[in-house]
Amino acid sequence: MNTFNDIKELVSALKREEKLISEMFSKRKSIDYKYSDAIELVDTDENRIDFLIARAVIRENGGYLELDDQYLDFFEQILDVNEEINLSYIDENIKNIKENIGYFLNENSETRKYGYLKFIKKTLRKIGSITIRSVVDIRRNIENTFKNEANYKNKQLKLENLDQKRSLVEKLIVQTLLLIDKEELTFFNRALDEELKRVIVDLKFQLRECSHNLIEIEKQIIDYLNQIKHQGKFLEKLRKLKYLKDHFTIEAETDIKQILANKNQVIFEKRIPEPLNLSLDFIRENEKAFEAIKRIAENHKDRKLFKPEIADYISSEFLENTIEEEIMINLDELRNQFIATSDNLFNFIMNYDFLRQVDFDERVTIFCQITSQYEKDLRIEDDFEIANGVEFALVYPK
């Protein structure tokens, strides 16, 4: 089997066959992808498909194509659509952390100690992401199993297995927290730096969120199992009745006649409305219809007619146009006038006539705005002065 020479060749191949790989991935569960369909997506160039097969990106099986397992797993994990829950990753990562902690404590070289510490930080981050993904996958699999699994025995068995995985995730969370808080105190006290501290805080937050979700998942599994148990009992009784009916012994071996005689299920049926629409010609020409209309009108003559209240006239004061004028400070114009002077910016603004009252604090704000927005047009000196308790840099036009 050929392999890619480097990462550049791999990325280029995936990019070139983007249409084919994307289509095969989206159809991975619905259909078996035919070779004849794939050839249309590579411009009828068989060499391009042979290239992917030779490098184990896709596999051919009797005229059908499918993505190789390692690429399929990679795409599912990156896109977070995988349904297989592999909790051995978490347990394996915890073991790797313990091993590297031992290496770190025994190492005298600072360079190699940094390598072990870097691996531990990376693995702690990985534990958090894998735990969150496992919880999401468990919840999604529970929903899919309860809604889509037709066989009740398999549905119950799958939910029980998912409950076992939920318990295993809880144990791994407890094991991870024990590792951080109790089992390796010497390492975390000796190697703790800002990055490791931040990684631990993020990991604890993620594990706490996962623990809360696992409680809800446990309640959901219990509820689903109870529903399956109830439905299973109902189906079991229904099968027994069908067996007796098929053998024509249902009336002899059960009291079904007495039970049905005591029930009146018609009251539970939904009432179907049947509107009666009379034609206009019938109402206008038939004397009986006219008498019925008069009788109905007589029964409703005592009804009160509610007249809508009319609002008062809008006062003319609210209809008058009012104009508020405010003098705005144009920073562009102020900048242009300053550049034409030789004074420093702070003195220029303090002495500038804005045509309205501008206090000291607002002038300081204007000084800061011009300095920050038009820095390219200004020359900021290293000298400072103080005015009214405010220290400012000397700023001149370029």
Rank of each mutant, 00 (worst) to 15 (best):
K257T: 11
K8F: 11
E18F: 10
R295W: 05
E107R: 03
N264W: 01
N86Q: 09
K147M: 10
Y71R: 01
K147V: 09
L207I: 06
I31W: 00
K121Y: 04
E317R: 08
M1A: 11
F367T: 02
M350H: 05
E170S: 14
N388S: 13
D80W: 00
L157Q: 10
L305C: 05
E218P: 00
M24Q: 05
R139P: 00
L179F: 03
V358E: 04
A340H: 07
F367V: 04
S211N: 12
D202G: 05
L105N: 06
I386W: 00
R125V: 08
L67M: 13
D383M: 08
N148A: 12
A393D: 02
I296M: 10
N262H: 07
F248N: 15
N144A: 12
N154A: 05
K245D: 06
L334R: 02
L196S: 03
Y33R: 04
D45S: 14
V42M: 04
A150V: 10
L192E: 07
A311T: 09
E143R: 13
S88F: 06
F205H: 10
Y33Q: 03
S12R: 12
N299P: 00
S22R: 11
E251Q: 10
L305T: 14
L378M: 04
L105W: 01
K95T: 13
E253G: 01
K301M: 11
Q227Y: 00
N189D: 12
N93H: 07
A56V: 03
L179H: 03
E107N: 04
Y89F: 15
E362F: 10
I323E: 13
L124S: 03
I329G: 02
F205A: 15
E216Q: 09
S134N: 14
T44V: 07
V201I: 13
